[in-house]
Design a protein around this nucleic acid. Structure first.
Lengths: 209, 209
DNA sequence: CATTATAGCGAACGATCGGTCGCATGTCAA
DNA sequence: TTGACATGCGACCGATCGTTCGCTATAATG
């Protein structure tokens, strides 16, 4: 089946690109890993670069549905424990799904060569995450769950350590379980510090908002 | 001069490797950028891979002197403002020094291909930073500057957002000034939240120490 | 059944890769 | 002055790269 082969090529390309990079990947090995002849690939893609473009198109489309639309945003948790649980579910998924891991690796190692990869990396690794958590923290402030502060600053303070540990999982997969425990510990630390539940009084800031 | 040429080759290699990666770099362009003949390089290095090895050796040696020895560790600040100032000086250096930037890029894009790069990346991007700041926060706790908590957790919470913004500078250099302002804002936010100066009372945690 | 399009294959192409070779030049000690 | 050594160069090598070619087998179409 044509569509099937095309998808299999894309899958193998994602895997190989994410390990060796675009320049380090050659078509012969890529097609051979699928039991396919070297030239058969060109029935489905005009060139090696078209595979790259198609992969990035997929990523952009996926990113748009995952982070770009309001209805896909996670709901504001009803408790501090809810925030921890939501975080752990997201992280558990993101460090165990092979496709997501490869996507992250690919964006990481090609972000200085390809403009679209660079743009996606920024969204995926920093601004997109803080933009996702900013309204969550704003909502939790309104519910009185965490103390009032700049929600974007809290989003940065919360997501960056988690993101750093996720990258550690990509780099050293054998440390994944350790990193997951660290993420849980950090998440609980965060809600202890910023939480306003159970009578812990609001923080008296000199520059309140 | 031989030593001079060898160093110039290493410099050009660092620049080209950090942009295109190892596989994407070819010797002809590399030597041509130095006004050198293609084959003259082999007077100084046995192979392309030896250049890579030499570059990593340099990085490892630099990392050892910078983070590995106790006398190179920054002193424990005497005030919260001292922590902010120390942080900003370090960050300002690290986002403006071209060699450091290229080193970070190189480790970033080659961390999944080369074991030594992966090890250096982990130290440079996560564990090394937290290991560096953990004793600093421990010392500041003893001085009563910040509230008592797990120093390693504070080091993670402090360094990860800063590190994320430094990576943003590498990715989108035109946003460097913006990122520096964000780092300063985060650092001040951090000392506001964790600081114990000027009569701000200790945090009453249910799981103290 | 005849025809046409689809999807596969191995062989081969030109370009480029990392690396080698023989030779020229400059320096410096003997 | 001469020989040894270090450093540079262009030409060239075999291997590998992305890609094209001609061909076959199968499936769909009339």
């Amino acid at each position: 089946m044509a569509k099937d082969t095309k998808a299999r090529i894309l899958g193998a390309a994602l895997e190989m690109f994410s390990q060796r990079g675009y320049a380090g990947t050659n078509i012969r090995e890529l097609t051979a890993s699928l039991g396919l002849g070297k030239s058969s690939m060109y029935r489905h893609f005009e060139s090696k670069e078209e595979i790259w473009d198609a992969l990035l198109d997929e990523m952009i489309a996926y990113y748009a549905t995952r982070f770009g639309s309001a209805e896909h945003l996670p709901p504001v948790p009803d408790s501090l424990e809810g925030l921890v649980g939501m975080t752990l579910r997201m992280v558990d998924f993101t460090v165990h799904d092979a496709r997501i891991i490869m996507t992250r690796k690919l964006l990481t190692i090609e972000q200085f060569r390809d403009e679209r990869a660079r743009s996606l990396a920024t969204k995926h690794f920093l601004t997109g995450l803080t933009d996702m958590f900013t309204p969550i923290f704003a909502g939790m402030m309104e519910k009185g769950l965490i103390r009032r502060d700049d929600p974007a600053m809290l989003a940065l303070a919360y997501t960056a350590p988690i993101s750093a540990l996720i990258h550690l999982c990509d780099r050293e997969p054998e440390k994944t379980d350790d990193a997951l425990r660290q993420i849980e510990a950090f998440s609980r630390h965060f809600v202890r510090v910023y939480g306003a539940e159970r009578g812990i009084r609001q923080y008296t800031s000199t520059t309140s908002l």
